[in-house]
C-alpha cells in the first residue's frame, strides 16, 4: 500500500538521462524491459479481474462439465438479500476498530517511550516486538491454538480463566483481533519510530524554549508532525485488516463459531470454494473490490486534507 503514498511524491520521470539522449531513445527499448512484467500483470491480475466481473453475471458451480448460465443481476440481488453479507461487513468494521489500537495507539506510545531509552536496549526491545511479523501466519495460528487450548493452554492458566476461546463467538472474535494485532504491531511500531526520527528536533526544542512542557510539546508539536505516518497506518489498517486476519480465520475458526469470525474475504472464499457458488462469489468479489477502492480514494483524500506537512 505504500505505493499510494509514493506515487504522490513527485519524482521527475526520466531524470536519469539528459534530454537529448532521451529523445533519441524514443524507441521500443523501455517497452521491451516492461514486457515481462506487463504480460504477467495482464495474465494473472487484469484478465482474472475481468473474468470475475463477467462471472458475476453467470450461474456456475465450478464443474468443468456443467455450463455457466447467464443470470443478469441475479447474483447481486441474491447477495444483497442474504443476511450474511451485511453481517460480514459489520464484523469486518468491528475487526478494523479492534485493530486500530494495535496499529496506531500502542505504536505511538511505544515509539514515544523508546525515545527515552538508550540506543542498544531500544533496538533489542524493538527486535522482540518485530519478531512476530516474521512468523508465518499458519505457524502463528498453530502456536496460538496451543496457547488458547482450554485445559492445558498457557493463556487460561496464566489468566486463571476457563474460556473455550475459539469455540465461543465473543472470545473467538477477541482472539482473532489479538492474534492479528500481535502479528502487525511490530511493523506499526517500526513505521512510527521511523516517522519520529524523521521529525526535525528543532521544532520540539523551540517549543521547549518557549516554555512548553514535554506533554504539551508531544501533543501540539510532535503528534501533528507525525500525522502523515498515522494517516498511512490508518489507511493500511482499514484496507488490509481483513486480509491480515484471513489465514488465521481460515486455520483457527473456519469463520465460526456461528459465523462470528466471517469477514468479507472469508465470506467470499466460502462462497467460491465452500459452497461452489462461483457467480455469487464473483459478485461479492466485485462489490468488495469496488467498495474498498472507493474507501481508499476517500481516505487518501481525507488524509491529504487533514495531515500537517513539515514546511
Amino acid at each position: 500500500m505504500s505505493a499510494l503514498v509514493e506515487v504522490a511524491r513527485p519524482a521527475p520521470p526520466g531524470a536519469l538521462l539528459p534530454q537529448r539522449v532521451r529523445r533519441r531513445r524514443r524507441t521500443v527499448a523501455p517497452y521491451l524491459y516492461l514486457a515481462p512484467g506487463l504480460v504477467l500483470l495482464a495474465v494473472w491480475v487484469y484478465r482474472p479481474l475481468a473474468q470475475t466481473a463477467q462471472l458475476s453475471f453467470l450461474s456456475w458451480n465450478l464443474l468443468p462439465t456443467s455450463p455457466a448460465v447467464p443470470v443478469g443481476w441475479d447474483n447481486y440481488a441474491r447477495l444483497f438479500a442474504l443476511p450474511d453479507f451485511g453481517a460480514s461487513v459489520l464484523r469486518t468494521l468491528g475487526l478494523i476498530a479492534g485493530l486500530l489500537p494495535f496499529t496506531l495507539l500502542v505504536p505511538v506510545l511505544v515509539a514515544l517511550a523508546a525515545r527515552r531509552v538508550s540506543g542498544r536496549a531500544a533496538r533489542a526491545y524493538q527486535a522482540l516486538v518485530f519478531a512476530p511479523l516474521l512468523v508465518a501466519p499458519v505457524a502463528g495460528a498453530a502456536v496460538w491454538s496451543w496457547l488458547l487450548e482450554p485445559r492445558a493452554g498457557l493463556v487460561n492458566r496464566a489468566l486463571g480463566t476457563q474460556a473455550n476461546w475459539l469455540q465461543e463467538p465473543g472470545p473467538a472474535q477477541l482472539a482473532i483481533v489479538v492474534i492479528t494485532g500481535w502479528h502487525v504491531l511490530g511493523f506499526a511500531v517500526l513505521i512510527v519510530s521511523a516517522g519520529l526520527t524523521g521529525i526535525n528536533a528543532d521544532y520540539a526544542d523551540a517549543a521547549a524554549v518557549d516554555g512548553a512542557t514535554p506533554g504539551q510539546t508531544t501533543r501540539w508539536v510532535v503528534l501533528p508532525l507525525l500525522s502523515p505516518t498515522l494517516g498511512f497506518l490508518g489507511l493500511m489498517t482499514v484496507l488490509l485488516a481483513a486480509q491480515w486476519s484471513f489465514p488465521l480465520v481460515d486455520t483457527l475458526t473456519g469463520g465460526g463459531p456461528i459465523d462470528a469470525t466471517t469477514t468479507v474475504y472469508y465470506l467470499l472464499w466460502d462462497y467460491a470454494f465452500g459452497s461452489f457458488d462461483a457467480g455469487l462469489g464473483a459478485a461479492a468479489g466485485m462489490v468488495f473490490f469496488a467498495g474498498f477502492g472507493v474507501v481508499a480514494l476517500l481516505l487518501v483524500g481525507l488524509t491529504e486534507r487533514l495531515v500537517v506537512h513539515d514546511s
Binding site: Q51, T52, L55
Partner: peptide
C-alpha cells in the same frame, strides 16, 4: 502496476 494493490487476491483466485 500500482493499481494491482487494490485488487485483492480473493477476487482473482477463481479465474
Amino acid at each position: 502496476f500500482v493499481a494491482t494493490w487494490l485488487v485483492p487476491f480473493q477476487v482473482t483466485m477463481l479465474p
